[in-house]
Nucleic acid binder design. Sequence first.
DNA 1: GCCGTTTTCGGCCCGACTGTTTTCAGTCG
Length: 576
Amino acid sequence: MSASNVSIVSALRQLVAYTQLEDGQSQSFRTRAYEKAIDAIVACPDEIGAYSLAELKAMDGIGDSTARKIIEFSANGSIGKVERLKAKFPPSMLDLMRIPGLGPKTVLALQKHLGVTDVDGLKTALSKEQLRTLPGLGIKSEQKIAESIELLGLHSDATRRPIYDAMQIARRVMSELGRSGDVVSMEYAGSLRRLSETIGDIDILVTSDQPKNVVAAFLALPGVTAVLGSGGTKASVVIDDSIQVDLRVVSDEAFGAALMYFTGSKGHNIILRQRSLNRGLTLNEYSLSSVETGDVLAAKTESEIYAELGLQWITPEVREGTSEIAAADDGALPAPVRVTDIRGDLHVHTSWSGDGRSSLAEMLDAVVERGLEYVAITDHAEDLAINGLSRERMKQQAEELDMHRERLPQLTILHGVELNIGADGSVDYDPDFLEMFDVGVASVHSHFDLEEGAQTERLLTALANPAVTVLGHPTGRKIGRRPGIRFDANAVFDAAAATATALEINCSLHRLDLPAAMLRKAVDVQGVMFTISTDSHRVAELENIRWGVSQARKGWVPRERVLNSLPKHEFLSQIG
DNA sequence: GCCGTTTTCGGCCCGACTGTTTTCAGTCG
């Protein structure tokens, strides 16, 4: 069996770290090339472990040398160069490089002058006050490194936080910081704005005429447990002992340039700056300007900067520094889905099911409030223990829905159901009973650990069921808590197209399901349609539609492939 | 190590903060 993308990326990350030590710098052209290859693999929807040399080299950012290393890893489970460097630099030196403030230069100096190659050795050297004797280091550096060891956990991959958690903290920080009268505008940027599934640190951009005041207010926020650094226009802190938050303050005129810079990704920025240089321009966090005259061409909005570079605006979610800029250049990026494109929500629970927290009336009123044209009420079906509705209850609900239809004539209310896909692919009730429903969202809520072949069969059976309109949260994953079920995506997407069953983009930040890489794969299958639905269990969750829209953008899903963006009559004839 | 309507060789993004260095190197994002 060939290596998974995850294991290949992990091996290449090791290669980067060891090469940084070999080169004695973190930004050599070689390591940057490896990092570019990693970005390409992360963004690739296909498993590349079985790719041929030619196929690997055809990928943008992967050349002959890296391609051969990938093949070597896939065949042997290791890379010769890494093994060779391990003999020179003990693996524990990589732990040292993860300590904030320690880069390859300092770690090499530790080994060369003090024979220190691991964290314990470093602690001993610190206690003997030996670090201050190293060239370029002094007493302050020694203290800083000692403090950094306490923060060691913050920079490891394992401490990336699920986006849901990070978003909560970001919103809290922003609401508190917003009380400072000096904040003109504020936006979160970085991987949060790109809707990455896990977040390493939170980036917050503020525009203000009084940057020093904003930085001071930031450092004084409740929940700040450590200050990692601060200056006149930027600062980094740790919130709740758990996640790093970076603040950057610029003038309001530079908002677009700063937002772009701070949103990244790093790879995306590098390509844009290169593109700028090719046009005699330079791009930084303040502006896009002429190299020769210094004249500012654009700074206030992202759109005008992209436009000056001859590009359509690129939605943040796809700024991964891979193929998005070339696609924008060709006008081949799909027009990003907007929240206002969504005309109906097809996955909504009420207090009729045990886990719903808002009443049917409250939900319907809120849906009208949001200006939707149609909605499907999809409470749980009977096979879900505790939460599911019996047949009798479903019939009662149907009657109650009729009342609400009279009450809310402006809204098309569909009677839906969230069906449970059993281990064998069967669903709740019987075919005759299922005919009463306008919409069937079929989801996996159990048997997450069946093997891949069985999961695929299970989903194919469900897709073939005429009562199933939508495949709900198809992988069943909970980000940071539960991996998705494994299935043959090609087979499932083909079947979705053949049976005209839509694939759900579940809006919950816990789910974001389908995942972006799978969405990109599904978009390539002609005829596959998608729904963007909130899976709301309470009124407040209806606003989660924005995350699903954002996820659709991340998956390059074009507007016209979103079933619930269709006008009511078109939508009804499609699901009819 | 990668890449090419400015190149198969010679380039490769940009700036803030920190500490130790009196002009800059290292680290980070």
